[in-house]
Design a protein around this nucleic acid. Structure first.
Lengths: 209, 209, 209, 209
DNA sequence: CATGAATGAGCCTTCATTCAT
DNA sequence: AATGAATGAAGGCTCATTCAT
């Protein structure tokens, strides 16, 4: 069970023991906040250190360099999030509910951790990405999840057969991301999760009569 | 007619006369390319100057500072693009065709000027934007266009009455942006415009049976 | 004639025009002084800038990086010095006088520019050299000069035939360098050039009776 | 006899007892290797600790600071070497043989411990030395040894009376050091000790006919 | 108008040294 | 005695912006 927590950090294998050491996580959380506030390139290591309440040099005990912090954020956070995505998808009976659960959970996660949402969207939605490969893997995981639902739905007869699945996946992700993005720009003044049902309605029924 | 070209540049009112001076435009085009290649914050003024074939200092004769270049790009380019959006929307008979024309034109524009697409998406799709206000205006223009089509479609009976229009607009823009983004990441290896019809089909009919 | 002054600086071809610009030379001279005072690795770019009376960033207009300054010092200075070595060697009639002239000139040069002597010796006489290749080339030039004299002297009958020339060259250079080194440690309190004749006497006659 | 081993270490008087503690020596030997590989200033305390198989902090239990390690190396190593120099000088009958023995032993010692040779030469042969005083003492010991041989040789009639002894000493040391240095740069591909006889020949007979 | 040399603030990163465990 | 995490000062280098020519 715990073995799964043993992971790479800055190229060095770090054991479960370090989980008790909160410095790593404090820096991680501080970075999410600072990156969210200023963007990756505009954030300074000193800002992160101050936010985390550690010395500048301490950062480099846990991370290879500034970029590595971003990599770790994605590694650490997305692993957790995807596990929960999988859960809610599996817990639903039919493809429509699976899709609804996924979208709802997606919105929930980002509503719960606004800073992460900002960092996540900022890095995901640009062309010259600091961590191209990371994101491609992540993106594929999400797409595979959606594809699984879609294909099952086509077999079940819930969804049309004549769909360009590659496009549908982007259509869904793009739509969800934009909805989150709008919510973020509105400073989270409304309930993001309440968008889930109308969104799923749009995905399934479109706007036509 | 020409009055509309009179604008601020570097805090100084510049008349239409300067339009004939190609330095301004050379810097603008060079910037689009450089920003597309490296991102705004990672681009240097020297790179832009070199690409434009002017001296570093010359940039500051036409632009207040680095950020102002980005502002000018958006001002200049989006004005042109929106005029064309308006044209194709107006030229269509019914709301469905208007929507189709808009989406198609949207994809066309970005397929024609890949660098602009990169810059546009990069700056549009993040939270802490260099030019928040600019983009809000621009975004509103697009949304208004879509809203106009949607409302007309609802009256015409082409589109459902029970739609949360604010959501539908984001749903459409997000979807289109993501499709463009995917195309950019694929290095434009396929025809972006061919995505227009399948996309509109998804918007109108959804994926359900 | 002037074409010979056109050279590489920091990987950028710089024309003779820049000779009028004294910044390059001011930084070069300042660096020699600072390197002499603290050693290369202990010198900071800020120190050099201050000594040269320029801003830190200015250094990087003329030099690729800190190490490049050292490379340029060697390139620039040793070219000049070797030209003078060649002159005095050629101006002498017989090998003994050639050797004497070389040694005397060698001591003269370093007596005239104490800081250069310090930098030169410091970088030359260590194992992990910042600029291994540079120094090898330079060292070979010196050795070739000595070899030329020695071989001529052997043919003339001034020097013994049974000599391990490779060793003799190191023997001479090592001896001269140590004499210079001692003079430097003594803060140049005596006339270094006056060591030339006794040294040559040792080289030629040894200490035996 | 043992009293001579009692020395300062990190400002604390350490008795002969600690000699049995191998940590001190392990750090010393590790430092010689690391300093040889990277030079004193480019070596880090962490590298030394890793090489010695101890923790970084442990270094400071045995040494006042990084510089102190270098001081200890010289103290410890040169004491041993000079004892052996003295031995071989005393064991020879006449001044020429004494000189030959000294040179041969000198080359032997450094051939046996290449890393020490590197560190020794690096620190000895520069102007702004980390440990000026140490080296002056050491240097004087060597010079006194040579002076003793030379004076004896002059009295015996082996060596010329008309010699500037101060110069001869530097001449010899410089020559030997350069020969060692060349051997080090050649990665010890030949037998250094075999240079002893040709060198002594040069010292005594010179290169003249 | 145009140039590009010059500036200097600011950032990432390293590393000698300390100290709680 | 031993550890190694933590510190924070310092250094090399970049780059937006200015200004004398």
């Amino acid at each position: 069970m715990f073995i799964h927590f043993i992971c790479f950090r800055g190229g060095i294998v770090i054991g479960a023991r370090d989980r008790n050491n909160d410095k790593y996580h404090r820096i991680l959380e501080a970075s999410v906040k600072v990156f969210a506030d200023h963007g990756f390139h505009q954030s300074t290591v000193s800002q992160i250190a101050r936010e985390a309440g550690v010395a500048d040099g301490t950062i480099y005990l846990y991370f290879k360099n500034k970029e590595d912090i971003l990599v770790q954020i994605f590694n650490y956070k997305t692993t957790q999030i995807f596990e929960r995505f999988r859960e809610v998808v599996d817990s639903a009976e039919n493809p429509v509910e699976k899709l609804r659960n996924l979208i709802r959970r997606h919105l929930q996660e980002f509503q719960q951790d606004r800073n992460l949402a900002v960092v996540y969207l900022a890095e995901t939605r640009q062309i010259n990405r600091v961590m191209e490969d990371q994101i491609k893997v992540m993106s594929k995981m999400y797409f595979d999840l959606v594809a699984e639902i879609l294909e099952q739905g086509q077999q079940d007869g819930h969804f049309r057969k004549a769909l360009y699945l590659g496009l549908v996946k982007r259509h869904i992700l793009g739509s969800v991301d934009e909805v989150i993005s709008t919510w973020l720009h509105a400073d989270g003044e409304y309930d993001l999760v309440s968008m889930a049902d109308p969104l799923v309605d749009l995905f399934i029924n479109g706007i036509g009569t």
